[in-house]
């Protein structure tokens, strides 16, 4: 992978929500690199900081109470955290765009679908209303909806069609980075497969980098080239799809896999991870996962783990590997 394929480079990103009750440490130092045509899956439980990371990339963190404490997000060689509001409005939608979770609420009910797609074109390109509308029709065709439905309102569309329309809006200006925040959670399984296939196809065609936020490991396996597992605002394991799925290293990742039903042993009970995500206003001193970790020792509870590179692509953040003989129960495949 050459360096000029690098599109986004996030370094040591820290985001806090400063409320009256205390500081919520949502994202605590994240490093992430996104490359052209490559897709990264960001996996983790609810409240792990996945969406906050995505919103930080668009500088859309609700402020107050959200504050980006530290870090750089480099897009095209420039740190977007230094940009003015006006410059940000130009970047959003043009360089980075986002697909939202719930297709039922992500379209404005008072405008036709065509108008909404045309709007995002007109915001960034100097075209007439009519041209933009024609382009909107083409975009609808591209996502598999007949162009003459552009003059219909969102309530006349089904859930799957709305998600397609939202994808069309996100891709209207051919962004370099596409963030998909749980794009299939609100859809049923058959439509899910179609939407994922569509995202995959369009990513190939437009040479977009994709950040797929999800808690569905099946979706990750289907779409992503790389996986980053998030826990309590940290990336605890990161690597290629094979690294994370077949050569799992982190106990938390193991716990996630154990919580999935096993198709070979249908009677087996699910093994959920015991306990809850720690309160982000009051994180443990040591490893954030240590209270729930079956392998945790005293060092885990007292010292923050440091990133450890197992191979050139595979990173894990777990102190237990200080002991060379340590390995988790899940076997390598």
């Amino acid at each position: 992978m050459k360096d000029n394929d690098l599109i986004i480079n996030i370094e040591n990103l820290i985001v806090h929500y400063e409320t009256e009750e205390g500081t919520v440490r949502a994202v605590n130092g994240i490093d992430l690199k996104m490359k052209k045509k490559r897709s990264i899956g960001l996996v983790g439980e609810t409240g792990a900081g996945k969406t906050t990371t995505a919103l930080a990339m668009l500088r859309l963190i609700p402020d107050p109470p959200g504050v980006i404490k530290n870090g750089v997000i480099v897009l095209n060689g420039e740190n977007i955290l230094d940009k003015s509001v006006k410059e940000m409005e130009n970047i959003r939608g043009k360089d980075i765009s986002m697909i939202f979770q719930d297709p039922m609420t992500a379209l404005n009910p008072v405008f036709t679908v065509g108008e909404q797609i045309a709007e995002s074109i007109m915001l960034h390109e100097d075209v007439s209303k009519k041209e933009a509308y024609e382009r909107a029709k083409e975009l609808l065709e591209m996502v598999g909806i007949s162009g003459n439905r552009a003059n219909e309102y969102p309530h006349q569309f089904s859930g799957g069609m709305r998600q397609r329309a939202i994808i069309a809006i996100a891709l209207a200006c051919q962004p370099k980075v596409l963030i998909a925040d749980e794009p299939t959670t609100a859809l049923d399984v058959t439509i899910q497969a179609q939407v994922l296939e569509l995202i995959n196809d369009l990513m190939e065609k437009h040479e977009t980098a994709l950040l797929m936020i999800t808690h569905d490991l099946g979706v990750v396996a289907e779409v992503c080239d790389e996986v980053a597992v998030m826990y309590a605002g940290r990336i605890v394991e990161k690597g290629s799809l094979e690294d994370v799925f077949n050569r799992t290293k982190h106990p938390y990742t193991e716990g996630l896999f154990n919580s999935l039903p096993n198709i070979k042993d249908r009677k087996a009970k699910l093994k959920p991870i015991p306990g809850l995500m720690p309160d982000p206003t009051n994180l443990p001193i040591g490893c954030a996962f240590s209270p729930r970790c079956p392998y945790a020792n005293d060092i885990c509870r007292e010292q923050k783990p440091v990133p450890r590179w197992i191979s050139s692509t595979h990173m894990v953040e777990c102190s237990a590997y200080d002991d060379p003989s340590f390995h988790i129960a899940r076997r390598e495949k």
Binding site: E89, F100, D102, T105, A106, N108, F111, L123, H124, I169
Partner: peptide, 27 residues
């Protein structure tokens, strides 16, 4: 609403969001 956030993510200006996205929904 999510569609307001979506409009922001698409790069719409504050004025535009207030008067062309929010206002028609408050009619």
């Amino acid at each position: 609403n999510e569609y307001i956030e979506a409009a922001r993510a698409a790069g719409a200006t504050r004025m535009r969001i207030m008067f062309t996205h929010i206002l028609p929904n408050c009619m």
